[in-house]
Amino acid sequence: MLSTGMWVEKYRPQKLSEIVNQTEIIGSLEELIKNPADMPHLLFSGSAGVGKTTAALCLARQVLGENVKDYTLELNASDERGIGMVREKVKKFTRFAGMADAPFKLIILDEADEMTNDAQTALRRIIEDTAKFCRFILIANNISKIIDPIQSRCATFKFTSVPEEDVIARLAEITKKEKVKADKKGLKEIYDYSEGDLRHAINLLQATASLGEVSQENVKASAGLAKTSDVDLVLKMALDGKITDAREKMIELIKVYGMSESDFLKYLNSSVFKSKHEHLSKILEVIAKYDYRILVGANPEIQLSALLAELGNIE
């Protein structure tokens, strides 16, 4: 079974109290669920891999007990582009009868900041219309992209990135349970690559461990696996003026691997910062221009191709 095969799932905390770091948030959440009927809608914000989704899943399990499967709907806004799909799924989900012992039905909407303003406005209505028997947990990387009316309907929790010692301690705990040899330098190297993203760290740990021991050398060998490295490559090729190659690589990422355009731009942004290029601000200006154009344009592929071509002309 996959869920036990992948360490990120195998070692995903099952209870709020097991979550690494985030002690204040966990404390408040545990208070809130003592009286589930009074629980407000929740909005979790914070960077990737710090425990937002895990907290939502733990909370669901603790409040809904054995009904958790039937009474939780998990959606990812990045997959369900249109609000129509969300509305249909939420409607269907809220419609089925039988309120066993559960205080409410729970809808976890991940990457909610990927929704357009229009979709969020519609979501606000859905939240209102179903408030009697549903609670929402919205999860977002960037809270400023969530419209105010939704923010005001939710209790907001800001997750902070996990400090180095906590990441390393967690990784060490896993290597011990998996009986994998790991040295300090190797674990430190993993932390440096993952930048406080615990999910990335654990994935990298597992990949490294598949080579044998977790040493600095093996970490380096596995670190470039993620497709974000391909985005680094696209940036490099574009800046070198190899527009055709850069474009084909980018289209491969988006159309073969299904990377979303907004994810591509997100990774491209961090690639730029990592590159420490001498024309950093010029590059970012060009990216910003086309990021906006994608929002108003009709065909993202055209906009992204034009972006790469313009990057190739920065001197």
Binding site: L2, S3, M6, V8, E9, T53, L57, E74, N76, S78, D79, D110, E111, E114, R199, H200, N203, A226, K227, T228, L253, Y257, G258, M259, S260, D263, Y267
Partner: peptide, 12 residues
């Protein structure tokens, strides 16, 4: 199964 979007899964 991994509580990710498709885009995130194929990337990371």
């Amino acid at each position: 199964k991994l509580h990710l979007s498709s885009s995130s899964f194929s990337t990371i």
